[in-house]
Design a protein around this nucleic acid. Structure first.
Lengths: 259, 259
DNA sequence: CATAATGTGCACGTTACTGTGCAAGTTTGT
DNA sequence: ACAAACTTGCACAGTAACGTGCACATTATG
């Protein structure tokens, strides 16, 4: 991965492209290591360390840019989420994070560590507030657990969602499996039993998996097999298998009737 | 925190004590920052950086020692866990992690990052295998969710437990609240609905909160208010409150009857 | 109280990064 | 084809840690 020695000259693209490449490379590497060196990021982007300074005055500037975009992106995709059923809205929340896996992970990571905490958590606050409200709403409606204070619960839901993203990244879950898994775990944390969670996830059309959006393939964990065969979530059985294990599914679609 | 300037000379204890102090300081600081400098650790222990080298040849040696002990400690407390009811055993698993908060967190952290991954995850493997088995058992018994592959589920349970520890640490949850919270979330991830989880946690005597053990107060997050008034979990309502908020409980004890 | 065991301060050498300056190459676009 | 825009390499300065050697202080302990 971390190429650092000079070899065949890298074919050159446009400057703007390079800037973009740098940002993407940064997202990719920072996902694995918050302290990835400029050298490695540059290499990942196919540039020399020196060239980076043509685009960003400082490593910190680059990181800040990544974070700014990431947070904005997260906010942009989360804030519009809305559904009268709090449970479905929470599932949508999870599904949305999954669609933005990498950005979500990097952003979340930096929301906890490093000198950018304030910035990130500030721009993320509206989204988090939204989730808190949704949770409160669900609790009042008697749909969500009542034994954990809503704000704490909201944070736990966030965290468990990020966990799934991480787990999925390391495990190479398919897009479809990840999609289903985040929703399920989010609902579980929210208090639903697994059968109920499965019900919600399986029966709400809003929660159906949508293979890929128009734009960029959102590289990263999403570059895993897509299993986009078939639109119905019903019977969807995707999932990478641990080395050696037989091809079994990480996430199964089970509904009450077959339980 | 990170004292770095010379002031009144620190009173000296015994050498062995200092070694211990260093290890404890390391656990404490590494909890917040995996890359805490030797300088800061030494300072936290009340020693000079130079003195550390009288006890450990290398920073890495110190860390390794922390990890070795941590992993051993975790294994020692987890492996003996046993209960015919997989749900209770899982709750016990969570409760145990909570009793070892700091060690659990540091160990878990290093099980994911840094150059010690192999070592740590190796010594932790038996404990993880145990959890996997428990999960499988619970699934077969029809007590746990069947929609997520058991090994993945086990990892998610681990992760969510660690999340609670982290959340609790930052939030300053009381020992009792944390105890209850880990168990609840572990069971939720395992597939139980919140009422069922509450039932299990509230009614199994094995899961009752036990104020403090004989030995060391296991400093750290555990130095939070203890709320050890009353032995019954029933009605236990502990929990720090976010700055400004009224004294509300982070975790409530609700059983079916009052739902 | 003597003395070995420890801890302290400070100076150094080393490594891994970041950030800059500058003199060539390369590529894009006109 | 030419110029402007970019990139490359390399040298250097700066910084933060680590690891060590040494002389000097401090303390536990017999």
């Amino acid at each position: 991965m971390t190429t650092d020695l000079p070899r065949a000259r890298a074919p050159r693209r446009d400057a703007a492209e390079n800037r973009a490449a740098l940002l993407e490379a940064a997202v990719r590497l920072l996902n694995d290591d918050v302290d990835a060196s400029l050298e490695s990021i540059a290499a990942e982007a196919g540039l020399s360390r020196r060239a980076v300074y043509g685009h960003f005055a400082t490593r910190d500037d680059l990181v800040r840019e990544v974070l700014t975009r990431g947070a904005a992106r997260m906010a942009a995709s989360i804030l519009p989420i809305s559904h009268q059923d709090a449970r479905i809205e929470i599932a949508l929340y999870g599904a949305t994070l999954w669609r933005e896996v990498q950005h979500a992970r990097v952003t979340a990571e930096f929301a906890l560590r490093g000198p950018h905490i304030d910035m990130v958590s500030h721009s993320l606050e509206p989204a988090r507030a939204k989730l808190r409200d949704t949770v409160r709403r669900g609790v009042k409606a008697g749909q969500l657990r009542r034994d954990i204070r809503p704000d704490v619960l909201a944070r736990l839901i966030e965290r468990s969602a990020i966990d799934v993203l991480t787990e999925a990244t390391h495990d190479g879950l398919s897009a479809r499996a990840g999609h289903r898994l985040v929703m399920l775990t989010a609902l579980s944390m929210a208090g639903l039993g697994w059968l109920d969670a499965d019900d919600v996830v399986s029966h709400a059309p809003e929660l159906a998996f949508q293979p890929a959006r128009g734009g960029v393939p959102a590289s990263g964990a999403a570059d895993a097999p897509d299993d986009s065969t078939g639109r119905t979530t019903r019977g969807a059985t995707i999932g990478s298998t641990p080395p050696g294990a037989p091809a079994e599914d990480a996430v199964r679609d089970i509904t009450r009737e077959n339980a």
